[in-house]
Structures are given as structure tokens and as C-alpha cells.
Design a protein around this nucleic acid. Structure first.
Lengths: 237, 237
DNA sequence: CGCAAAACTTGATCTAGATCAAGGCACCGA
DNA sequence: TCGGTGCCTTGATCTAGATCAAGTTTTGCG
């Protein structure tokens, strides 16, 4: 299948796929009550290349989106080539286009990605609105932490917080080593953390020197001791 | 009435007061459908001094809060006397304690304030849940803009954005001069904008020199031409 | 009114992180 | 396999805003 051009295609197996994803560990987000009502829903899968946008016309008010693999982000572009990534959408995460803020924000793929799109015809259904409220509430928690990070944390604290966010999303298995594939460039990370790519590179280098993370190519690393990383003091790097 | 010590007192007229506030211009936030069901609700008014907290035990999951006058903020305290104001709650604004993020955030009064508290026993009621969803969504919009401001804007841009936020909340009347009472210290403003008090003071001084705002004491100023302030380029200050 | 504490302003200096610059590495297509 | 185009790293320098340091104004209270 061609990865370089975006396509919006109905996929017969998508429904099963989504149901499967609902049950797998990484996606506890999607309530089973929702899954149970799939028969009534319009499900599509969209394959995206890096840079492809989720257009506002396509992502209807009444659509739930799930990242099957890859990485999306909701971003804001400012004057003078300044950019801020407001929310990262990692594999297994479900989000709703109405929580993607407003027309001045864009949701795009940072890496080749597959997104499952459920058009919800029946927004008035109590199960669905409850779920949307849960999603909005989770997003509020994310954004409030993000606000603190961007307003008051040092570069080292931001990068360590980001690394821990990645590790937590991987779902460490009982203190074992965790593999993380960060499918974004240093500049993407910088735009997420309110820094510059050079600063991200320098801080990552210093964290690497502590041995808390072990790089295996620039976009993949492992964390031998996730608890140690979590407890690590940013002042020491 | 004593302003220096907080008290939580049932006020017979609070219900009427809130209804009145619902209808007045500055508080279009609170839907009239909610107001119509006041008979079933438990309404109290709380007078707060600067620094008083809205305790998590008091602000039940099922409570709506409205600032009658004064100024509240939801804040996060970090190590080393660092603080971030995440959300400002201005007069007329309604918010819900479940949108005040989590236990690690505190909502407190930045100035002597009156807060009207509605305990909602019937969270399952569709009108109420719809309204809570609207509040959560409005908060998401606020926080996403805040993220961009903190991540990528210069000090001048942050302060101008803040001034415009204040003016907008006052609700300018057809391009006329707007009076703004900022019931917060320079340090509060700094903690809201991710800056230091000295920087806020310097930038406000420079904005004052342009004539776009006219100070009448450190906590009160007027904006002769709100449109000019809105259109003003931060590079010029 | 008068004093003390808090808040504000303004200047001088410092620094974390940005910017500028130059190689090095890795992935991709021919 | 080879070349090229993005990335990534690392060093040198610069700067916006922080920090340090006085004064000054405002506020609140006896």
C-alpha cells in the first residue's frame, strides 16, 4: 500500500480491528460500552504520511479518532515559523475532533500513521456523551500539566517529563526495561516542549550520559530502569 | 461583614442573586435552562479573602461555582517557590470543580471575592451534563491558547495578550474606552504568564508609554481605544 | 495622621537557552 | 554501491528575560 499519499478508504476489517484494539492493553481508553454499539457506526481507516492533515471537514463534530499506529499531534502555527505542539496523539489513544480546540489548530501526522475514524451519528446517546466527557476531562488534565511544564520548568525538567510520558504510555511491565520508539524529530520534540531542537539534542545527550536511557539510533531508545528515570532529579543533568 | 476570615454561609437571597447574574450581560455563560431548575438546588455564597482556598472537600464533584466579584485562580505550586496560575476565574465566570484538574492544583482567591456555590445533586440530568460539557470545552479552548502563549510567545506578546483578555472580559461597549481593574499583583500576573514580576512591570511600563493604556494607580487602568490595543504589534514594545 | 509592610519601578548584571555555524550520520532512491 | 538530503550533534557566541539591588509609591491599620 502506498504510504506517501493519503487516502480515506472504507475497510471491512476495521470494525473488528477496532474491537480488538479496544480489548488490548494499550487502549483501555475506549470504553467497551462504545464498542458494543459498533453495528450502528460508520468506521473507516485512514493511512497518513508525515505531514498529512486531519481536515476539519473530514473530522466531523461527531467523530471519534483512534491512532492505530504512528503518531499525530494537534498544533498551532504562529508567525515567523514558530510552532507549538499542543497535544500528542500516541498509538492506542482515542480523541475527538471537538476536543482538537478550534479551526486555528491543526491535527497532523508526525510519522506515517493509521487512524481509525468512527462517525458517531447518535451524539445524543448517553453512553457516547459520557465517553466524550471523559475524553474532554482527560485532555483537560493533560493540558493543565502542559501549562505548568511550559510556564515554569527548565529544559532538563521538560525533557525528563517528556521521556517519562513516553515510558508511561508504553506501559512498563513490572519494572522491566522499556523500549521506546519516538517517531518524531528533535524539532517536533522541541515544538512540543517549548524549546529549540539543539537544546533538546543537548539535554538528551546528557541524559544518555547518565545511562538512564540507551539510544539505539536517534529515534529509538530503551530505558533499563523506568523507576530510576521517573525518580531522577533534573538538577543532576 | 468581615472580609478577613472566610465563611461558608447559606444566604437566602443567593438564589435570586444568581438568577439575576444569569441574566446580566457579564455572565452569559450560565444557561437559562440551568437557572430554571434552581428550585431543586442547594445554593450558598462564600466570602473569601486573598489567599483563601476552595477546598477540594467543599467543592464537591457536583458543584458549580460562580465568581460574583473578586478574582480566583487555579494554581500549581512547584518546588523552589515556583508557581503557575493555570486558569483565571473572573467575575461572572462559572466553573466546575471537576474541571479544576486534580488534587495537585489549588483554586484560591487572588483578591477578596464572593463565590456562589451550587451543589448539583442531579448530575445525571441531561441539561446539567450538557452544561458541564460546555464548560469543559470552553476550558479546553482556554488552555490550548495558554499552551501556545507559554510555549512560544515573547514577554511583550504575553502581556499584550493578557491585557486583551482583560479588556475582552470587560466586554467593550462599541469601541468606547474600557475601565479595567486588575485585582492581582505583578507577581500574580507573572505567574500566570510564565514570567517574573520585574519583567511584567517593565513591559507594562512600555505599553503605558505608547498611550494604549492609561494607569490610574497600579491596579486600575483604562484603555482609550480597545481596537488599537487589540491590533497592536508586540514587536513595537 | 503616621508608620510599617507590601507592592511597584527601575537600573545593573548574569545566565539558560537561543542562535549561528560546521561536521557527521543515516536513510532513501537511482 | 553511491550520492544527496535531511537529521542530528556539538561548539561558539549572543540575548531575552532572570536575578540582584536600590529606591519609591501605595496600602492598610493603629
Amino acid at each position: 500500500m502506498d504510504l506517501t499519499s493519503p487516502s480515506l478508504e472504507p475497510v471491512s476489517a476495521a470494525q473488528d480491528e477496532l474491537q480488538r484494539l479496544c480489548l488490548c492493553a494499550g487502549s483501555g481508553d475506549l470504553s467497551c460500552a462504545i464498542c458494543d454499539s459498533f453495528d450502528h457506526l460508520d468506521v473507516k481507516i485512514r493511512r497518513m504520511a508525515r505531514g498529512d492533515l486531519i481536515a476539519h471537514e473530514q473530522a466531523y463534530r461527531s467523530a471519534l479518532l483512534m491512532v492505530r499506529y504512528g503518531l499525530l499531534a494537534t498544533t498551532k502555527q504562529l508567525s515567523g515559523r514558530r510552532r507549538q505542539l499542543v497535544s500528542l496523539r500516541q498509538p492506542g489513544e482515542v480523541f475527538c475532533s471537538i476536543n482538537a480546540f478550534d479551526q486555528s489548530f491543526r491535527t497532523l501526522a508526525l510519522a506515517p500513521s493509521d487512524v481509525i475514524i468512527l462517525k458517531l451519528e447518535t451524539l445524543s446517546d448517553a453512553t457516547v456523551t459520557d465517553y466524550l466527557f471523559q475524553l474532554a476531562h482527560a485532555e483537560l488534565l493533560n493540558l493543565s500539566s502542559r501549562t505548568v511544564l511550559l510556564g515554569r520548568m527548565t529544559a532538563a525538567e521538560r525533557v525528563l517529563s517528556f521521556l517519562n510520558e513516553l515510558v508511561e504510555h508504553q506501559g512498563e511491565t513490572s519494572g522491566d526495561s522499556v523500549q521506546v520508539d519516538l517517531a518524531m524529530t528533535r524539532e517536533d520534540i522541541a515544538d512540543y516542549l517549548g524549546l529549540k531542537a539543539e537544546t533538546v539534542s543537548r539535554v538528551l545527550g546528557r541524559v544518555r550520559n547518565t545511562g538512564l536511557i540507551v539510544f539505539d539510533g536517534p529515534t529509538h531508545f530503551s530505558v533499563p530502569d523506568p523507576a530510576a528515570l521517573r525518580g531522577f532529579d533534573a538538577m543532576a543533568v
